[in-house]
Amino acid sequence: MSFRDWLVGTVVSTQSQTPTAKSIVLEVPGFGGSSAGQHIDVRLSAPDGYAAVRAYSLASTGPSSTIEITVDLIPDGEVSPYLVHELQEGDELELRGPLGRWFVWKPEVTAPVQLVAGGSGIVPLLAMVRAHAAAASTVQFKLLYSVRTPRDMFYASEFAALASPTFEVTYVYTRETPEGWPTPAGRVSRELLESATIPPSESPAVFVCGPTGFVESVASWLVELGHSAETVKTERFGGA
């Protein structure tokens, strides 16, 4: 069995993260585990043999054959509406993986880690936070998480529960803040990045994931702030 072979997973549970995003937990016999940050291909097949495949980041990590993805609805998409609205507990889903060996964090790496997420770009970064907690790693982890409104946040309670001396989250609300939030809604800026992230002097490994525009600005600012381009890994979400 290789990561290139198609496997059949069974949906164990689903959970809404936001009005348009759903987490799907699957039991996948034969799945060989994954590193934090990897993704899978998901294949949907119609009765006439037509198939559509899309890649989804894994929120889960480690050796388990129980895996989790979180899918954000793309309204005119072909695959995400099915996964968010149709797929139910007990359904079978074809997938293969884990895929990708670049945008990956491994617990044996000792550099501090700065994560920067825009919207649904949080999913592979959550896998890294989970791997960090599972390994009881003492490496410093910081997450800057940008969402439009409080309702658009994924895994809010889990992030709150995982907060520790070695894991700190800064939230940024671009359209609407929670009540009583000390700063007005606004996008991530270079100044905010500078004040809320691990400085280049500590040589962090940086992972940036989100929509293209977000990733382009953040990654460019990080380099301007003095991070070496080789230490900034990016992944962009797009397409349908």
Binding site: W6, V8, R43, L44, S45, A46, P47, G49, Y50, A51, A52, E78, Y82, E86, D91, E92, L93, E94
Partner: peptide, 9 residues
């Protein structure tokens, strides 16, 4: 292939 119930594409 597993047919995805309700998927037409």
């Amino acid at each position: 292939a597993v047919i995805s119930r309700g998927f037409t594409g």
